[in-house]
């Protein structure tokens, strides 16, 4: 899976840190650091983090397994996530 956070948009609400603590972390009060290439086991947590971001700053690929994005998309053809 791949992800990128638009840090111009991010306002440090830290919902992603709550939902996917192994992918996102706050560095200090509001600076976000994240793993742009998280492990597959993070899929469901990452999906929740993406959905929960109040400013919709997270773009992720390989989340729903539809193969809709990316010729080289990691994690296509896997289980479709519910609750998004």
């Amino acid at each position: 899976m791949r992800l990128v956070v638009d840090l111009n948009r991010c306002q440090g609400y830290a919902q992603c840190v709550f939902f996917a603590p192994d992918v996102f972390a706050l560095h200090g009060e509001e600076a976000l650091v994240y793993d742009p290439h998280p492990d597959e086991v993070q899929r469901e947590r990452l999906a929740r983090a993406v959905a929960a971001c109040p400013v919709q700053a997270i773009t992720a690929e390989g989340l729903d397994g539809t193969g809709e994005t990316g010729e080289t998309a990691a994690g296509t053809g896997e289980a479709v996530l519910h609750g998004r």
């Binding site: 791949r2 990128v4 793993d35 742009p36 010729e71």
Partner: peptide
């Protein structure tokens, strides 16, 4: 906290 080999950008869609 991230690998220099793996910061590839997520794709928004297929670009063919």
């Amino acid at each position: 906290k991230a690998s220099p080999h793996h910061t590839e950008l997520p794709r928004r869609r297929e670009i063919d």
